[in-house]
């Protein structure tokens, strides 16, 4: 029991929580934006992998870190364009198309990586983002090291969650996106172009997913390996439901999941040898299923999610 209290009392845990949460926040916001417009994007897992790879590769080849983020976002957008073409223009099954994008993007990442980076015993590394101390706040006791010594993308992700919430619920554009996700025919009748809204949302959402992936190689670690996304994309899909399609709650959900994860990592080291560590690896996922079961019952699904829109057809 003391071990548990010790873990929660250490500033290191809370600093780790924000770091672990960042790719989840970005991925969840991306998936949420797509789904608010009515398109499920299961391409997320592959898009994050590709973003992680291309972001790293850009920096490895001499570009600066922010360029890496930008390239990862652009490549995510291109995969989004592919997904939108298949699901919005052609009206194909969103599940199948999304899984296809994931399989393609994951394999393609590894292919490009192997093509350009020679096999080596230790993977090549880059110099990742360094934590920034927020002036004044970072010198607070406990809170300072816990919350205010993060890398720039983490601060950006949190601000982005708030910004997306504002856009969705306070601007005409956000209303158009939500309307399209609820009833594209109604949107069309009000003079909104549902196709354009869906394209835009999927492309921007996918770009966020790509950036979420890039965080892994440019900030959390300093090298790329093909399995590094490790199901984070699928967690994001679940977090969208947990968040009931609201960016603020998505932020909370991602932080909660990261808390479980950071906690189990520390529990592993304390109890190593006593319990097999795989048990601890399960903990965040089990807790997420429990949280999802509790929260998702009240969730309001966008009514047109996964329904292709065809003009002039009811």
């Amino acid at each position: 029991m003391n071990a548990v209290i010790d873990i929660f009392a250490s500033a290191g845990l809370w600093a780790a929580v924000l770091r672990i949460a960042t790719p989840l926040i970005l991925g969840t916001l991306g998936a949420l934006l797509c789904e608010r417009s009515g398109v499920l994007n299961l391409g997320i897992e592959g898009i994050m992998t590709f973003g992680a790879m291309i972001g790293w590769l850009t920096v490895y080849n001499g570009a600066d870190l922010w360029t890496g983020i930008l390239v990862a976002g652009l490549s995510g957008g291109i995969f989004g364009l592919l997904h939108a073409g298949l699901t919005v223009t052609l009206g194909l099954s969103q599940h199948v198309s999304g899984l296809g994008v994931t399989l393609f993007a994951s394999s393609f990442s590894y292919y490009v990586f192997r093509l350009l980076v020679p096999v080596a015993g230790t993977p090549p590394t880059i110099e990742p983002f360094q934590p920034i101390d927020v002036p004044v706040l970072s010198s607070l006791p406990f809170l300072g090291p816990a919350l205010f010594t993060q890398t720039p993308p983490t601060y950006a992700a949190i601000l982005l969650a708030l910004a997306l919430g504002y856009v969705l619920f306070r601007t005409p554009l956000g209303l158009a996106i939500r309307m399209t996700g609820e009833n594209p025919h109604a949107a069309e009748a009000q003079g909104i172009n549902p196709m354009a809204v869906r394209y835009g949302s999927v492309v921007v959402g996918s770009a966020l997913m790509g950036i979420g992936g890039a965080f892994l190689t440019l900030s959390a670690f300093n090298s790329f390996f093909p399995t590094m996304v490790q199901g984070r994309g699928w967690i994001c899909i679940a977090l969208v439901v947990f968040a009931s399609w609201r960016p603020g709650r998505a932020l909370v959900g991602a932080l909660l999941f990261a808390l479980f994860d950071g906690f189990q990592l520390r529990l592993q080291t304390r109890l190593s040898g006593v319990v097999p560590y795989q048990i601890f690896l399960m903990i965040p996922y089990l807790l997420s299923i429990a949280a999802l079961a509790l929260m998702a019952r009240r969730a309001r699904v966008p009514q047109a999610l996964m329904q292709p829109y065809r003009r002039g057809e009811r």
Partner: peptide
């Protein structure tokens, strides 16, 4: 009916009536 059931009456009525890129409804 061409309505979005999860949105409010006002939201249903307002959608598409403003300039899309305005930064506040």
């Amino acid at each position: 009916f061409s309505l979005a059931p999860n949105l409010t009456v006002l939201e249903n009525v307002m959608a598409g009536t403003e300039r899309l890129w305005h930064f506040r409804s």
